[in-house]
Computed example of a mutant assay.
Amino acid sequence: MVERHHQWMTQFGRSYKDVADKAHRFKIFKDNTDFIDTFNAAGNRSYTLAINDFANLTNEEFVLTRTGLKMGSRRNSSAFMHADVTEVPSSMDWRTVGAVTGVKDQGKCGCCWAFAAVAATESIKQLTTGNLVSLSEQELLDCDTSVNQGCNGGNRDLAYHCNPERPAPRAGKISGYEDVPANDEEALLKAVSKQPVSVSIDGSGSQFQFYKSGVFTGECATMTNHAVTIVGYGENSDGIKYWLVKNSWGTDWGEAGFGMIQRESGNVEGICSIAKRPSYPLA
Rank of each mutant, 00 (worst) to 15 (best):
M1T: 07
H5S: 02
M9P: 01
F12H: 15
G13K: 11
R14H: 05
K22A: 12
N32Q: 11
T33Q: 01
I36R: 09
N40R: 08
S46Y: 06
L49D: 04
N52Y: 04
D53R: 12
N56K: 02
E60C: 00
V63P: 01
L64A: 15
R66T: 11
L69G: 01
M81S: 06
M81F: 00
S91L: 10
W94Q: 07
V103Q: 06
D105Q: 02
D105R: 06
C109A: 10
F115K: 10
A117Q: 06
S123H: 05
I124L: 10
L127N: 06
E139I: 11
D142Y: 00
D142V: 04
N148P: 02
Q149P: 02
G154I: 07
G154N: 08
G154F: 09
N155G: 06
C162Y: 05
R166I: 14
R166D: 00
R166V: 09
G172C: 13
K173A: 13
S175Y: 04
G176H: 00
D179T: 07
P181Q: 05
E185T: 04
A187T: 03
A191D: 08
V192M: 05
S193K: 07
P196L: 01
V199A: 05
V199W: 06
I201R: 04
I201K: 08
Q207T: 14
V215S: 05
E219Y: 10
C220R: 10
M223E: 14
V231F: 07
S237A: 14
D238S: 15
I261R: 03
Q262R: 13
E264W: 12
G270L: 08
C272K: 07
R277I: 12
P278E: 10
P281D: 08
